[in-house]
């Protein structure tokens, strides 16, 4: 019996030393507000969230973990990437917490620290989108999806061939796009903001 117990992984205990005490402060600053400190853990965000059924932690738990300093767990999990920015949590939060902005802040923090789930498709889509806009100033669905599938799984694109052909047939794919005139200005501005 004692051997069974000794083989069990330690799951539900956290030492203070393992926490990042400044995490809440960092996120509050990045997420436009101190409101996160006022969270009463009512769970309205989790309940209204259309994606919470698929999340590792519900949004309510994420807020609690941010406040307590569970940096590692928060930044490496998929929950924050599943947020589709529908903002229903934000408009319904009784304490005015901008939860969508918190999710954005966490995504940025994860990317900056390179600890997001790398094989996960959603950050890859975000990066693809970012790069597409950066190069042309506008988003082009063909270019965007090419970038995306190159980064993830090129074969998974095959299942969308049908939809793609139909879009082509109905004239809903912009293969050649009108270019911006002052694209150089645009690129310069972007370069500045990345510094």
């Amino acid at each position: 019996m004692s051997s069974t117990i000794s083989n069990m992984p330690v799951l539900n205990i956290k030492r203070e030393a393992e926490l990042d005490k400044n995490f809440a402060k960092t996120i509050a600053k990045l997420a436009h507000g101190e409101q996160i400190y006022g969270c009463i853990q009512c769970g309205n965000c989790s309940s209204t969230c259309p994606l919470s059924p698929y999340m590792d932690y519900t949004p309510r738990k994420i807020i609690a973990m941010v406040k307590a300093g569970f940096r590692e767990e928060v930044l490496t999990n998929k929950t924050i990437w599943l947020c589709a920015s529908c903002y229903s949590c934000t408009v319904e939060c009784p304490k005015g917490i901008k939860i969508t902005d918190v999710m954005y802040a966490l995504k940025r923090e994860a990317i900056q620290n390179k600890i997001y789930p790398k094989r996960f498709t959603i950050p890859a889509m975000s990066k693809a989108f970012y790069d597409t806009v950066k190069s042309t100033g506008r988003s082009n669905e063909v270019a965007l999806l090419m970038r995306y599938y190159m980064r993830t799984n090129i074969f998974s694109a095959l299942s969308y061939v049908g939809v793609g052909l139909k879009l082509l047939k109905t004239g809903r794919l912009a293969i050649i796009e009108k270019q911006m005139k002052r694209k150089q200005d645009f690129k310069k501005m972007l370069k500045d903001s990345e510094n």
């Binding site: 990045l30 970012y130 806009v133 506008r138």
Partner: peptide, 14 residues
């Protein structure tokens, strides 16, 4: 005009 920034962009660099 250029891209509005959309949701994906916010996630990378606000």
């Amino acid at each position: 005009w250029n891209c509005c920034g959309a949701t994906n962009y916010m996630a990378i660099n606000e």
